Simulated assay, not measured.
Amino acid sequence: MNVTAWVAMVAAAVAIWQLRTLAQQTREFANQTRELASQTAGNAQALRATVYITMSRMTMDIDTLFIEHPELRAEFYGTHADERSREYHKTQATAELLIDFMDCLINHKKHLDEDLSIYWTNYFTNLMGQSRALQDFWKENKNWYGPAVHAILDPCKPAPPAKS
Rank of each mutant, 00 (worst) to 15 (best):
V3I: 13
V3R: 01
T4C: 08
V7L: 12
W17H: 08
A23E: 09
F29Q: 15
A30M: 10
Q32Y: 09
Q32E: 15
E35P: 02
S38G: 15
G42L: 14
G42F: 13
A44M: 10
A44D: 13
Q45Y: 13
Q45N: 14
Q45G: 13
R48K: 14
R48W: 01
V51A: 12
Y52L: 08
Y52W: 00
I53S: 02
T54W: 07
R57C: 01
D63F: 05
T64N: 06
I67Y: 00
I67W: 04
L72Q: 05
A74F: 00
A74L: 01
F76E: 09
T79A: 10
A81Y: 06
E83S: 11
R84Y: 04
R86A: 15
Y88N: 06
H89K: 01
H89W: 07
K90P: 01
T91N: 03
A93K: 02
A95C: 05
A95Q: 01
D100S: 08
D103P: 01
C104I: 02
N107S: 07
N107A: 06
N107R: 07
K109L: 07
H111N: 14
H111C: 11
L116A: 15
S117T: 10
Y119T: 11
N122S: 11
Y123P: 01
Y123Q: 07
F124Y: 08
N126K: 13
N126Q: 14
L127Y: 05
G129R: 00
Q130S: 03
Q130M: 01
R132Y: 09
L134N: 08
F137G: 05
W138P: 00
K139R: 14
E140F: 04
W144Y: 12
Y145K: 05
P147D: 11
V149W: 02
H150L: 10
A151W: 03
I152S: 04
I152W: 00
D154E: 07
A159C: 07
P160L: 04
K163Q: 09
K163T: 12
S164F: 04
